[in-house]
Nucleic acid binder design. Sequence first.
DNA 1: CGGCATCCGAATGGATACTG
DNA 2: CAGTATCCATTCGGATGCCG
Lengths: 124, 124
Amino acid sequence: MDPSDATPSAELGFDVFAARCTSRATMETITSRWGALTLAALADTPMRFGELRRRIGGVSEKMLSQTLKQLEAGGLLTRTVVSETPLAVEYALTDAGQQVAAAIMALIDTVYRVQPAVDEARSA
Amino acid sequence: MDPSDATPSAELGFDVFAARCTSRATMETITSRWGALTLAALADTPMRFGELRRRIGGVSEKMLSQTLKQLEAGGLLTRTVVSETPLAVEYALTDAGQQVAAAIMALIDTVYRVQPAVDEARSA
DNA sequence: CGGCATCCGAATGGATACTG
DNA sequence: CAGTATCCATTCGGATGCCG
């Protein structure tokens, strides 16, 4: 069997097409509006809250905070208090987070590649 | 420069981190709740509406219909009326859609790979 | 079969103000 | 700096009914 096959009943028994599979929840977390961008932003280097906020155009504090919590709960990133006064917190990807982020980066690259075609389709 | 680098100002000038870049809209369309699953479902073979609906656990008719329209508008898939009576419509990925779907499949495989760690993190 | 139109409650998400 | 709390508008998304 092709190891890159993502059809149902993959080697490990997960199936994103099944509504109740836990992998579905993970998929929704990482492909959420800000989840993917947050992971991509942290792919290169750990960042602080404010840095992330400036880097990801259009996120509100609320959404970034919420997204970070979800990713942390899923074990994709860690939250570390670097300094108390002034308060400084650093967010960094875990191993699992790095793997997912790499896949997200590849997806983003693909988007860049097809974007001219997409723009063309929309204007037509 | 690493060609797989997805940081801002990639070779083609797109930047998903910029709120107004058209690539951001594309990213949101394909990473939307049902967009990613729809593309993945069509990666192997074209499908009819009902087949897609049954394949993607939990989609409502309304949402699937809406998602298909968005993907079609972005030139990622085509809608073809195969038969009039009874009405039969087939959805198939375009070249651009195939490229994106391949990246989504890779992401799904990555999710499967890290899912045990994610489940572990959530239960802990 | 493959939709679209409408209604409506629930969830999402932004702006603003405030806190340790 | 790094959030939290609140308010409010928009959107999501299921249910229902109808149509070609």
